[in-house]
Design a protein around this nucleic acid. Sequence first.
DNA 1: CATTACGTTTACGTTAACGTAAAGTTCAGC
DNA 2: GCTGAACTTTACGTTAACGTAAACGTAATG
Lengths: 126, 126
Amino acid sequence: MEKTYTISDLANEFDITTRTIRFYEEKGYINPRRNGTQRIYDAADRTSLRLILRGKRLGLSLEETADMIRMYGEPGGNRKQLEKFIQRISEKRAELERKSRDLEKMLDDLRRVEDKARLTLAKYSN
Amino acid sequence: MEKTYTISDLANEFDITTRTIRFYEEKGYINPRRNGTQRIYDAADRTSLRLILRGKRLGLSLEETADMIRMYGEPGGNRKQLEKFIQRISEKRAELERKSRDLEKMLDDLRRVEDKARLTLAKYSN
DNA sequence: CATTACGTTTACGTTAACGTAAAGTTCAGC
DNA sequence: GCTGAACTTTACGTTAACGTAAACGTAATG
């Protein structure tokens, strides 16, 4: 038997509300099976959720992240489709790499300010 | 004389609308001087704008980014204030470093999928 | 001196991503 | 068989970050 989760298992694990999880389902980003009326989540659902939240933290919209998740599960398709697919992926990748550069710049700025403040503080201690 | 900019200079440069720039001013994140009723932006205003937009691309709220920008201009203050300041900065830095790790994971995933697709495509070409 | 381009303020509208409240169901434990 | 905890659906509310429209001023240009 595969391990399963209730809605509040996941809500607790990821520190979000059950409302949020139901909202994602309402939008079609997660599709748990049911036991009667209750939702049952499996490892794949949990992974989807984890990826969605990761995307959110990076400022992606739910739709953008969902797009990427769908890419992960995409089948081969014929040659033309594959080429288009690779194109889409590398565009996404380029976008994320821009983000990464932005982030590094911002971190540099912060480190500079922090260093400066530490230096000033060191003078106080003498 | 320092170089200055009109509102549409900046709107064009950063590919945003003038409405957006006025909105940032309304919220207090930019404070251009005036010539009569017209806004005149200097290099510092332009830098603020650039930082705000960079923050946005990383999924920070305007208020979060504005907070960081204010940090850059913070004076020394006494010892206690400096210590608090350093604490705040390094918290921000830790948060951004988490983001960076998230980003790298996401990029890894994308690269994996892209490689796999390229391999499949290579088979087609033989 | 009328047109065109650019600027201004004021104010209501929109969208994403949930929060919150109401009202009801299910099930384990006493 | 009742209570309480956890689940459910439905639906209206909220906030951030602008969009959009109206109604107007100003300045260069043909």
